[in-house]
């Protein structure tokens, strides 16, 4: 597992916010990136995402939604994308807090995104509910995929809705 600061991934919400003391990897607005290269990594990233949702003040059901979405996206990067990374970022604070997940891989990409988002559609042995399900579990969901180059999924859930 790799764990490093990824300042460039910080969102606009943080850019003009007040300066915060530099802290550990749980500092508000800090992004942590985790490798998704093994079965063990799939378990590890779930713990990291859970911690971020707790830090952002999410209640239990929302925590579960976000960790489940992260688990689906990380598994896709591992299984379909041949491995990748998951970046976790806590956005804002208090009632306006949110969690952003960025899941990247350099795999084959998704030729037909509409189909891939359809429940029950799979090219593997899965249930085909991961991508569409993760989209339902999050408030903002964006897939950037290029065939032959890879896939980046960015998803946010806010705490105030």
């Amino acid at each position: 597992m790799t764990l490093y600061d990824e300042g460039y991934a910080r969102g606009a919400q943080q850019a003009d916010g007040p300066l915060r003391p530099v802290g550990l990897d749980v500092a508000p607005g800090a992004a942590t990136t985790h490798a998704v290269m093994s079965e063990q990594d799939l378990l590890t990233v779930r713990h990291a995402v859970r911690s971020a949702t707790v830090e952002a003040g999410f209640a239990l059901v929302d925590q579960t939604r976000i960790v489940t979405a992260a688990s689906e996206l990380a598994r896709n990067a591992y299984v379909h994308g041949g491995g990748g990374s998951l970046t976790i970022e806590v956005l804002g604070h208090g009632a306006r807090a949110g969690v952003r997940l960025i899941v990247r891989d350099n795999g084959p990409g998704i030729p037909d995104l509409e189909k891939a988002l359809t429940d029950g559609w799979t090219t593997g042995a899965g249930l085909g509910h991961g991508l569409g399900g993760a989209r339902r579990l999050m408030h903002e969901f964006d897939v950037d995929t290029v065939v032959g180059q890879g896939t980046t999924v960015t998803a946010i859930r806010w705490n105030n809705r």
Binding site: V61, T68, E72, D119, H129, G133, L137
Partner: peptide, 13 residues
């Protein structure tokens, strides 16, 4: 757990 059941339904499973 209730939170797990709610999330499972939203996943469509």
């Amino acid at each position: 757990r209730p939170a797990v059941a709610i999330t499972l339904v939203e996943l469509g499973l």
